[in-house]
């Protein structure tokens, strides 16, 4: 499943970049984080609970920033497992500054879900993955546009 979109974020590009590439910050927008373990700036492990309604899986995700280029282009690969299921997420993000205070982010995510969740939930997978992805990105936008607190 591929999802993509463009976000106009009322925040300068360097701020958007540092948020997106900081495991501690970006995972605040992941669904229901149970734990976060940062290995190095490019690698971290996060445990999330994701799903819709009563269907929920606990996913242990190994995340790697595979490309980080000039505060403008990033790719991230996240791979994880829940019992009987596996998930892989490959995302690209391209930032361009509209002006000093606004940034356009083009993003695309390829989500692959395998195993029991995919089989039983195939009927609802597209909707659920779409929803979770939208939530993540609208959270990113909201957090970046929120007034910076000390």
């Amino acid at each position: 499943m591929r999802f993509e979109g463009t976000l106009d974020i009322a925040a300068p590009r360097d701020r958007v970049w540092s948020f997106l590439t900081d495991p501690k910050q970006v995972t605040t927008c992941a669904p229901d984080v149970q734990s976060l373990d940062v290995t190095d700036p490019r690698h971290f492990k996060v445990v999330v609970r994701a799903g819709v309604g009563p269907i929920k899986g606990t996913f242990t995700m190994n995340v790697e920033f595979t490309e980080l280029v000039d505060q403008g282009h990033a790719t991230v690969v996240a791979r994880g497992q829940a019992p009987g299921s596996a998930v892989e997420l490959r995302s690209t993000m391209d930032l361009s500054a509209l002006d000093g205070t606004r940034t356009t982010m083009k993003w695309a995510s390829d989500v692959t879900v395998s195993g029991m969740i995919q089989q039983v939930g195939a009927r609802l997978m597209q909707g659920a993955a779409d929803k979770i992805t939208q939530q993540v990105f609208s959270c990113i936008k909201a957090k970046l546009e929120a007034p910076v607190t000390a």
Partner: peptide
């Protein structure tokens, strides 16, 4: 918590362990 009424949707999900109330 989860309400158990007829259980005809919930119990199959629980048997797949996709629901674990």
């Amino acid at each position: 918590g989860k309400v158990l009424a007829g259980g005809q949707s919930l119990i199959p999900l629980m048997k797949f362990r996709l629901a674990q109330p």
